[in-house]
Write a protein that binds this DNA or RNA. Structure first.
Length: 457
RNA sequence: GCCUCAUUAGCUCAGCGGUAGAGCACUUGACUGUUAAUCAAGGGGUCCUAGGUUCGAAUCCUAGAUGGGGCGCCA
């Protein structure tokens, strides 16, 4: 039987025998009896197993160490006067796989740094049980949201030929011999002899491919892994992460923000609805006030201001900032705007030279129809835009910014064959997860994080 | 890439120029309802590495390695 099921049915099951399988989180043996805290992976909670000398293998059971895998057969006993509503009175305890004495996870707080070095064992701690249960829930919620609105999911390619679209450094994909690659006449590496007959990289974004599908299915989204080879050392960057990228034809920037706002609210509501125990734990041990913050965001209207308005607010703030804010914002500016409004804020219409080539040029010729969503406690979690759908404008912008128009001819063609005003955004999945769980380092919301100089496991 | 802080037992940390410490974990024992149980005893150390200063270095100095935090780049 699964513990999750027993949790909802323990009243009906009172007095009946059940078998549970799981891992011992903590063990409190005494002289003639003892207690095992068992987690079977099906829910956040543990169940207390009580055993005594009536067990055939009482002496062996007394010696069970934390981390051991066990099978318990016993009776469901209601315990309304104790901290837990029910427990299991064991009739049989079978050790399925004992844990050696040097099992490193103890029933106490460990540092995140230590647990990162034990990434294969950390899902057995309360914190990571909560985080990864919510991660799974959030994945489901994303698909629910888009599928229920008729969006088509597309698996955008992980290996791409797009060399650079301005999103950052890329990982090269190659089968050439690193010691003796073939060279061309000028002495440079000859990638025409590489596996795909050209230079290829891991994707930095599925957006361009999503745009192609949006011109066929209208509303589409991608949800998959993304790779950046930047040597960033921060708590919000990893080399491999997941992005959600919806793309919508016949949709302007306002419509884009409507979908984004609905999505963020939906995601938070789903977590609030289905992860009570996890959020309660996180609110207590990770971020005091997490629940209140999420509830407020789930019910509040998001603010919408232009970049020009945001700059005005910063200018009138009477606060001294270390960095200039006329063009792009640093985290200190984002924090000020968030505390000013005390709600999620969309900032739109950014100066064109701070943003990517595909964003639609506004009539002022100075700004583009870009949008960043700033969220209290999470910083920038979404970046999006209305795309430049006018062929000549796009071509001009690409030339100005030195983007290879030959390589991206297929992307330009989309503007010649039935172009539409269209928009989309990218949600950093792990950043959303940080925002929802209160966990402050992105390496602690991804199962096996990859960062510069670190690819263990 | 830049700036900072750290590295002492399996974990969390104290010690800051004079014999290597505590709590938890582990092992053993006590305990008839524990909730990160409690109590007692025991085992456990390349004080990150390499140099240097000193009668004497975990402690002071130099370099390096690894990790954390901040900034930049971004999601």
């Amino acid at each position: 039987m699964k513990l999750k099921q027993l949790q909802t049915e323990h009243t009906e099951k009172e007095g009946s025998n059940v078998t549970l399988e799981g891992w011992v989180r903590n063990h409190r043996p005494q002289k003639t009896f003892g207690f095992l805290d068992l987690n079977d992976g099906t829910c956040f909670e543990t169940v207390q197993v009580v055993y005594d000398q009536t067990l055939d293998n009482f002496d062996e059971t007394r010696k069970i160490r934390n981390g051991s895998a066990v099978r318990i057969e016993g009776e469901v006993v209601l315990t309304p006067k104790r901290p837990q509503p029910f427990e299991i009175k064991a009739h049989e305890v079978e050790v399925v796989g004992a844990a050696d004495a040097d099992y490193p996870i103890q029933p106490k707080r460990h540092s995140r740094e230590f647990l990162r070095q034990k990434a294969h064992l950390r899902p057995r701690t309360n914190l990571f049980t909560a985080v990864f249960r919510i991660r799974s829930l959030l994945t489901q919620a994303i698909h629910d949201f888009f599928q229920s609105r008729g969006f088509i999911h597309l698996a955008s390619p992980i290996i791409t030929a797009n060399d650079a679209e301005g999103a950052g450094e890329m990982f090269r994909v190659t089968t050439l011999d690193p010691k003796a690659p073939p060279l061309d006449d000028s002495g440079a590496v000859d990638f025409s002899q590489d596996f795909f007959g050209r230079k290829t990289n891991l994707t930095v974004s599925g957006q361009l491919h999503a745009e192609a599908f949006a011109q066929a299915f209208r509303d589409v989204y991608t949800f998959g892994p993304t790779f950046r080879a930047e040597k960033s050392h921060t708590s919000t960057h990893v080399s491999e992460f997941w992005m959600v990228e919806p793309e919508m034809a016949f949709t302007d920037l306002q419509g884009n923000m409507d979908v984004c706002e609905d999505m963020v609210r939906h995601l938070i509501r789903q977590v609030l609805k289905h992860a009570d125990s996890e959020l309660e734990f996180l609110d207590r041990f990770v971020e005091n006030g997490l629940l209140r913050r999420l509830e407020r965001v789930a019910s509040s209207e998001f603010v919408r201001i232009t970049h020009t308005e945001a700059v005005d607010i910063l200018e009138q703030s009477r606060q001294t900032f270390e960095r200039p804010f006329e063009k792009d914002f640093a985290s200190e500016h984002e924090k000020y705007l968030l505390s000013y409004f005390d709600a999620p804020v969309f900032v739109t219409d950014w100066p064109k030279d701070t943003k990517a080539f595909y964003m639609r040029l506004n009539d002022d010729n100075e700004t583009v129809a870009a949008v960043d969503l700033l969220a209290p406690g999470g910083g920038e979690i979404v970046g999006g835009s209305q795309r430049e759908e006018r062929y000549t404008m796009l071509k001009k912008r690409m030339d100005e910014m030195g983007i290879d128009t030959e390589e991206l001819d297929w992307y330009l063609q989309l503007r010649r064959f039935g172009t539409t005003p269209h928009s989309g955004f990218g949600l950093g999945f792990e950043r959303m997860l940080m925002y929802v769980t209160g966990v402050s380092n992105i390496r602690d919301v991804i199962p096996f994080p990859r960062t510069p100089n670190n690819c263990e496991y």
